[in-house]
């Protein structure tokens, strides 16, 4: 089954991906994000043709708790966030919970 990559974010964020050929995208200007991002993300995630959703890490802040949890836990489609640094928030929490130690600790030399 072939699927597509989708991008959700501000027009500045999505333009580059569209330049690379991404067809599924939702452009939401920064000032409308608090109101519209939830719905846009939900819609993109329920689209069966979408296999990967690309978002900016900062945009997660605009999401309501429920949607955010879905974004963080979802496997189909999987959401990849950009711009957040290596210790991407939720995954790190989940690792701590499942294994018992913070494996993504930046202070550790190399584990």
């Amino acid at each position: 089954m072939t699927q597509e990559i989708a991008v959700v974010g501000s027009p500045e964020f999505t333009t580059g991906f569209r330049l690379a050929g991404v067809r599924e995208f939702a452009e939401i200007p920064d000032e409308e994000k608090p109101d519209r991002l939830d719905a846009a993300v939900e819609e993109t995630m329920t689209n069966d043709d979408v296999g990967i959703v690309v978002m900016h890490e900062d945009d997660l802040e605009y999401l309501s708790r429920e949607v955010r949890q879905r974004v963080e836990r979802s496997v189909e489609p999987v959401v990849v966030t950009l711009g957040g640094g290596a210790g991407s928030g939720n995954l790190r929490e989940q690792i701590k919970r499942a294994i018992g130690i913070d494996l993504m600790d930046d202070d550790q030399p190399d584990s």
Binding site: I5, G16, F17, L19, A20, G21, V22, G51, I52, V54, R73, V75, V78, V80, L82, L91, Q94, I95, R97, A98, I99
Partner: peptide, 28 residues
């Protein structure tokens, strides 16, 4: 070009991160 390369990385990251999420679920 740069964004095409970025997309490739994203696909790779998606693969690895999905695997991680699933493994973590199973571990839990």
């Amino acid at each position: 070009d740069a964004y095409e390369q970025l997309l490739d990385s994203i696909v790779l990251a998606a693969e690895v991160e999905t695997a991680m999420k699933k493994l973590l679920d199973e571990i839990e």
